[in-house]
Write a protein that binds this DNA or RNA. Structure first.
Lengths: 228, 228
DNA sequence: CTTGATTTTTGGAGTCACTCCGACTTTACT
DNA sequence: AGTAAAGTCGGAGTGACTCCAAAAATCAAG
């Protein structure tokens, strides 16, 4: 079956700065800086002219590098938007949760901490977020990238329950939890940060815990309703 | 904000044959046939040489049309694989479920009926399935396309519960259910149809209903275990 | 500070998906 | 048959991305 070579394996996403944000030789540090500088330039252009309407050439010019060099830093145009310097931090946070702790608690805590971290450059994060949901190509990539998150959660669940990560039911559970958190993030981004990320995640996880069984109109309980 | 035009709106996916599979003028019927013939030619080539390794030119040649014409039938290369003649059938099935029926029951029934329908060209369906999970570009598109399914389920849930489709909790529920079914389909495809689609869907929905709360190793209860 | 090895940057040539469009052919209808 | 609509095709782009080899910057030693 020719499927093996069918994918031309998308070369691994931008290498995450293995450390928490300060690792690696001076060499690597500089590369990191350039990468972020390119990203900034790109996002600025995308916001001004739109994603599709901006060419790599323009981004390269704005970042004062050659188009060739752009591809040294990001394998595809999409990756400039995808790239998130916080990712490794989040992953590490998650992995370092105490072994015995119930999954949801861990998730809630991580999300809470992240939300706090985000306050720094929330503006940029939210801007990126909007792209994800408005540019088809990015939206698709994001979904796919989520697979990684799901795997993390799966591992965690496997450890907690003593089941194998191959267990079908376990995989369903992991995917379901991931989906819930995704919807929370989406709401967060689309509401432009008005609703707290931690809050939304809590509510989403509550829905999961209740077996997604929603009773009649709860119309009378206007929760964190703000404006329409 | 330039976001509005940021997406160059991916022109709508291949128009679904509005009817259940037999509607439209003679004109349209012929188009449909051509479309399916192109798809067959394409899938055959993809299987033989791999997706990325096959050019549109080759597909066009195999289907005895010009490359230009290819794009008359499918907006992108991905869509040749994505296109599913059964989609409209499935959607219609789902929409025609009795109003009062609980969502899960409806889902189970639809899935069961579909599974039965699939027996016809299961081989091709499964082949397509494998592409989805092995070719990054297709995987991503599929995730995104799932958004449509989620919307359907959301509508249905809204009707059932009397809540608004904007309700955050409802959206989470819809996404969670969709995720469960996705995992079931994925398992189905990856197991090459060994486990029944309807079975898997049932088990997945059960996990959701239980609040995704899995107890310790259930190793001792081998369920619908078949071979392994 | 010089030299040679090692990265990094860059330009150029090429592939491929996809767009735009005008010319040409087929089909449907009177 | 005659005409309008729909479908097909070819050619000339554009832009993302690959491959490669030649410059240029960086670094390590002597």
């Amino acid at each position: 079956m020719a499927l093996a070579k069918a994918s031309k394996q998308r070369r691994p996403t931008v290498p995450l700065p293995s450390g928490g944000g300060q690792r690696g030789g001076l060499r690597e540090r500089k590369k990191q800086k350039t990468r972020e500088s390119i990203q900034r330039a790109a996002l600025r252009l995308f916001e001004k002219q739109g994603y599709e309407e901006t060419t790599i050439e323009q981004v390269a010019a704005a970042a004062e590098i050659s188009p060739s060099t752009f591809f040294n830093y990001f394998p595809t145009k999409e990756d400039v938007v995808l790239y998130d310097a916080y990712d490794p931090v989040a992953i590490r946070m998650f992995l370092e949760r105490p072994k015995g702790e119930p999954l949801e608690v861990g998730l809630r805590e991580v999300l809470k901490n992240l939300a706090a971290l985000f306050e720094r450059d929330e503006r940029m994060i939210l801007a990126r977020g909007r792209f994800f949901f408005e540019v088809p190509a990015l939206r698709a990539r994001l979904w796919d990238e989520l697979e990684g998150a799901q795997l993390l959660i799966l591992e965690m669940l496997a450890k907690r329950t003593g089941r194998s990560p191959d267990d079908f039911e376990l995989r369903v559970a992991a995917r379901v939890v991931t989906a819930a958190i995704l919807e929370a993030s989406k709401e967060w981004m689309q509401s432009n940060g008005r609703h707290g990320l931690a809050d939304l995640a809590n509510r989403a996880l509550a829905v999961v815990a209740s077996g997604a069984r929603l009773q009649a109109p709860t119309r009378a309980k206007p929760r964190t309703r703000r404006r329409s």
